[in-house]
Simulated assay, not measured.
Amino acid sequence: MKRTEGINMYCPFCFPEKDKEQSIVLSNESCLFVQKPQPVLLGSGLIIPKSHRETIFDLTPQEWQATFELLQQVKGLIDKEYQPQAYNVGWNCGHVGGQEIFHAHMHVIPRFKDEPLAGKGIRHFLKQPSNQRVRQNES
Rank of each mutant, 00 (worst) to 15 (best):
K75H: 10
K75W: 02
G76P: 04
G76L: 05
L77R: 12
L77D: 13
L77I: 00
I78F: 03
D79Q: 15
D79H: 09
E81S: 14
E81C: 07
E81T: 14
Q83H: 15
Q83G: 01
P84N: 04
P84Y: 13
Q85K: 13
Y87M: 06
N88T: 03
V89P: 01
W91F: 15
W91N: 11
W91Y: 15
N92F: 00
G94N: 06
H95Y: 05
H95I: 08
H95G: 03
V96C: 01
G97E: 12
G97W: 09
G97T: 06
G98N: 11
G98M: 12
Q99R: 12
E100V: 13
E100Q: 13
E100I: 09
E100P: 00
I101Q: 07
I101C: 08
I101K: 12
F102D: 11
F102P: 07
H103L: 08
H103P: 00
A104P: 01
M106S: 03
H107L: 14
V108P: 11
V108S: 07
I109R: 03
P110H: 12
P110T: 03
P110N: 12
P110Q: 12
R111P: 05
R111G: 10
R111T: 07
F112A: 11
K113N: 14
D114Q: 12
D114F: 11
E115G: 06
P116G: 00
P116C: 00
L117M: 07
A118S: 13
A118H: 11
G119T: 10
K120C: 02
G121I: 05
I122V: 13
R123Q: 06
H124L: 02
F125V: 06
F125T: 06
F125S: 06
F125A: 04
F125H: 06
L126S: 10
L126N: 06
K127N: 04
K127F: 11
Q128P: 00
Q128I: 01
Q128A: 12
Q128N: 10
Q128S: 08
Q128Y: 00
P129V: 07
P129S: 04
P129M: 01
P129R: 03
P129A: 02
S130V: 10
S130W: 06
N131G: 00
